[in-house]
Design a protein around this nucleic acid. Structure first.
Lengths: 225, 225
DNA sequence: TTGACAATGTGATTATCGTCACACAATATG
DNA sequence: CATATTGTGTGACGATAATCACATTGTCAA
């Protein structure tokens, strides 16, 4: 409770732009909470009252589509969630669910907006963050629409290995169904793609445990779709 | 040249937040230019020096994918382009091409950033804009990955009729090929989808001239994919 | 432990869409 | 004006991935 934001080591680039007084203001209007694996952080359509900052852990962002619930993105530590809903709309436009035990800061929306209006450097850093985020969606959009399943699976395995776990061996914290919608395909097709890459000797898979065996070839598959 | 931004009637929400002095600053660091149909506004990979504001007209945003050039979005008047490239990267991450004769303001990137740092209300409005934009991409991402071609075509026809031309009859300013990549499909499939909706009596098409004949049914097709 | 339910693997079949090929129209270019 | 180039429609064919069906296996709670 005491001076938590001031002394927090896991500050976002934006939070680093805040003055000591503003950090005190922030810690008076935010709340830290630990979410368990599978626990809902917020739900699409529900009223939005806080902006979420992921201090540690891993969260999936998902949204109802015309046919099924779509996984939009895997958000690692350092991500802001729900900013989009804070401003114009007051309801969440997507859902967030913890994939691993995650420590999450809930920042009161109005206070967050006050910080933006008070500190232009904070706002600027936030803009940088939002722009990066949007560019990533562009790339994902293009990949997803032009690559076929094996390529998209290769992308995703490299994403988890490089960006999330920083290891060539990891436990994938997704069900086959979620992996399917993350790849914009079905559970069955995801399973078959895993089998294909496995048969090629590119990866080794046992249940949710994945290992990269041939990184070169995996990158080739990722690139050529 | 004289006091152009100050007296400009087509200000963005963000620009409305600027003080008279800041508007003078803006007009000293921006340039208005008219682009012809088909003219390139900026190109992916090239150095980014300006932020672009579309004052009037219509622009397509496109990006090279692993297999072909993908149309990401159709940007109407009031859109900001190239903010994403301004900050972290200094090269454009996507291309922009005028689809119709368009009046475009080119704002010097450094000056734009100075305005953000100077006026938190301006920054805040920009954040609202970026968030809206991102949410639209989410929706488009989900639709594009779950709907089939007729549904996506229906979406796009409704988009042009409702958001762009505000009329049930309009000239589509896209080639069949561009329409194809906007729908994340091929030229041939786009052609066939047009024929199908046409045969159903939902739309009437002659070359690039489109008319909505049965809006109810068009909406149903759009909704159910 | 025992059921209930969710998650997973796998085969058979089908639908949708991509690819290829070609004809023809429209538009640019010298 | 003639020629090249780009855009468009359409048919035939095949490939990729969706759907459906079912057998297992794993997980959770009473």
């Amino acid at each position: 409770m005491n001076r938590k934001c001031t002394h927090c080591q896991i500050k976002s680039d934006a939070a680093r732009a805040l003055t000591p007084e503003e950090l005190v203001f922030l810690e008076d209007h935010c709340l830290e909470r630990v979410y368990g694996k599978g626990e809902t952080v917020f739900t699409e359509g529900k009223r939005s009252t806080h902006v979420v900052f992921i201090k540690s852990g891993l969260v999936k962002i998902h949204m109802q589509g015309p046919r099924y619930e779509q996984v939009l993105k895997i958000a690692p530590a350092g991500s802001y969630l729900g900013i989009q809903s804070m401003l114009s709309k007051q309801t969440h436009q997507y859902s967030a669910t913890a994939l691993l035990v995650s420590t999450i800061c809930l920042i009161d929306s109005r206070s967050f907006e006050q910080l933006i209006r008070r500190n232009a450097d904070f706002a600027n850093q936030l803009i940088v963050y939002l722009c990066e985020d949007e560019l990533n969606y562009f790339r994902r959009f293009v990949s997803q629409s032009q690559k076929q399943i094996n390529g998209k699976l290769a992308d995703t395995i490299l994403f988890f290995a490089n960006e999330i776990f920083r290891q060539d061996h990891f436990e994938l914290p997704l069900t086959r169904k979620d992996l399917g919608t993350l790849l914009c395909t079905t559970r069955e097709s995801a399973t078959r793609a895993i089998k294909e890459l496995s048969d090629l000797g590119v990866i080794q898979v046992n249940k949710s445990s994945f290992s990269i065996k041939n990184r070169k070839l995996l990158q080739t598959i990722s690139k050529n779709g």
